[in-house]
Design a protein around this nucleic acid. Structure first.
Lengths: 281, 281
DNA sequence: TTTCAAATGGAAAATATATTCTAAAATAAT
DNA sequence: ATTATTTTAGAATATATTTTCCATTTGAAA
């Protein structure tokens, strides 16, 4: 007999016991917390494969939590799925999403809605406005570059750190210019025409960024800009320049679109270099 | 091969053909129109029994509508159920949308489309799954905090830098733990119960982050976690923990949802503190 | 290191489920 | 009313899924 009346109750129990479980069982518990619908619908074999185990592991897991069998555990999730899906039909969902209440900034939930919506909008914009040829050109430059210097201060800094992190994962040598210890100038010494600088800067453009890009431009023409206007000071210095319109809600601009663009550049590069490596063999 | 792209399409077909069907098949078609979720989840035997027939009747029904098998028909309903489920399983949806159009990674434009879509979905998911009470609690803690310590390494670092930047703009005193010069430990010296630590960490959790949060937890209970599972090591140390499912495309996870959450927290805090200031005058 | 208990993977067995097949029933056509 | 055709129920078969079992592995304790 099952002792759980709802998935939530079971979830709670999993979270509590989680630490006491063995390695494989932990994997399972984590997977179940993250993908409750999978448990409801997929077969044990599929679930097991996805959480990196054996069907028998799932059975052991279920029994460890007091179920008679894994099927019984699945039944719990199925019932939940059915009861949740049943009561919000298509029309209900439409009605909910249309019921736009005037924004109350003191209500964090409204804030959340506002932000997710405007970020989605700016992603949509990005897709619509980015030029395909620019993308291709930028990816080629990245792949060819010897060392990549990345610069972006203040609001642009998160984008810069993301780029640095992601590019490093693709085994590209890159240097994040971070001004630590006042060594900004020192970090760009030695930049050559083989190298690339990726600069991120938005209005009002940080003077320091501008100075460094200007100096770098004397050594290499390989400059990619991520900015907010085709006439921004760094755009004019760049070989390829991306104009990104970020969502703005009450003074605060977000970075979704810029980060998304960064992702595309990095992964585009990863595939590009992979292709070149395999074809040169 | 199935000719239907959606349950709705299939529904339409059933309605059209309904009159031409035999008695038993009519029963089945009515049942399916009325209880689409049952078809998705229950076994043929159960469905058959409920609509007053035999398992083989369902099979005949499915074949009459051009399916290769009854299972294939069930699959259609399962997919629909999953994508509509209120508590949508994020990764499952991504997996499905990926499965529909095989990605050409050499075409940057496809990449762009893929990434904007995934990021939009993860924002949608954020909105659906974040708990309102948690948000409110977190914002209160932020507003009350004396000094905010922010930690997040590697992939989480961009989120940490964004938080530090945005919070500073609201005149909140905050310290970004950045490990520069190996002074990590030094940066958290003096943290008190009046202070707050916001920790961001995703699988596989950076040990250093974990160490620092563990130590901080000895001095203050005010810890907010942004992470990817309710059983992540930092979630268990936190007073409020946010579980964020980020889009993942071939090893690369994005940060849209985390950054959006960060925005909401910061602006929520900005309004909250504004309100408190004006009411105390 | 050696010893023991717990955990694990995978094969085998058991169970459940889907599909096919056929004889019988229902329906329609003559 | 008789015959031909379609439909059906249910048994038989084929698949698939789950569960059990046990030889190994892993990890902790002595």
């Amino acid at each position: 007999m099952t002792q759980y009346n709802s998935v939530d109750e079971f979830r709670q129990e999993i979270i509590e016991k989680h630490e006491t479980l063995s390695k494989r069982l932990k994997q399972v518990s984590r997977y179940i917390l993250d993908h409750p619908n999978d448990i409801a619908i997929e077969t044990l074999a599929v679930v097991a494969e996805r959480c990196g185990g054996q069907a028998s592991t799932i059975v052991r897991f279920a029994k460890a939590f007091g179920f008679d069998s894994a099927s019984q555990m699945q039944r719990l999730f199925r019932d939940e799925l059915l009861s949740n899906a049943g009561n919000l039909d298509y029309n209900e969902r439409i009605r909910r999403s249309n019921a736009k209440k005037p924004l109350d900034y003191n209500d964090p939930f409204h804030l959340l809605e506002e932000f997710t919506e405007s970020n989605k909008q700016s992603l949509e914009n990005l897709k619509a406005n980015i030029n395909q040829a620019d993308l291709q050109k930028a990816i080629k430059i990245i792949t060819k570059a010897n060392t990549i210097y990345i610069i972006g201060f203040r609001r642009s800094f998160p984008v810069a750190t993301y780029l640095a992190y992601a590019l490093q994962k693709t085994n590209k040598r890159c240097i994040l210019i971070d001004s630590v210890g006042g060594l900004t100038k020192g970090q760009t010494v030695g930049i050559t025409s083989q190298d690339l600088m990726i600069a991120i800067s938005y209005h009002s453009y940080t003077q320091e960024t501008l100075d460094i890009v200007t100096e770098a431009a004397e050594h290499t023409s390989n400059i990619i800009a991520i900015t907010d206007s085709p006439v921004s000071p760094i755009a004019t210095l760049a070989k390829v320049s991306f104009e990104v319109n970020e969502a703005e809600v009450r003074q605060f601009r977000s970075l979704s679109a810029s980060l998304c663009l960064a992702q595309v550049l990095v992964i585009g590069h990863a595939y590009q270099s992979q292709k070149e490596n395999s074809s040169s063999k």
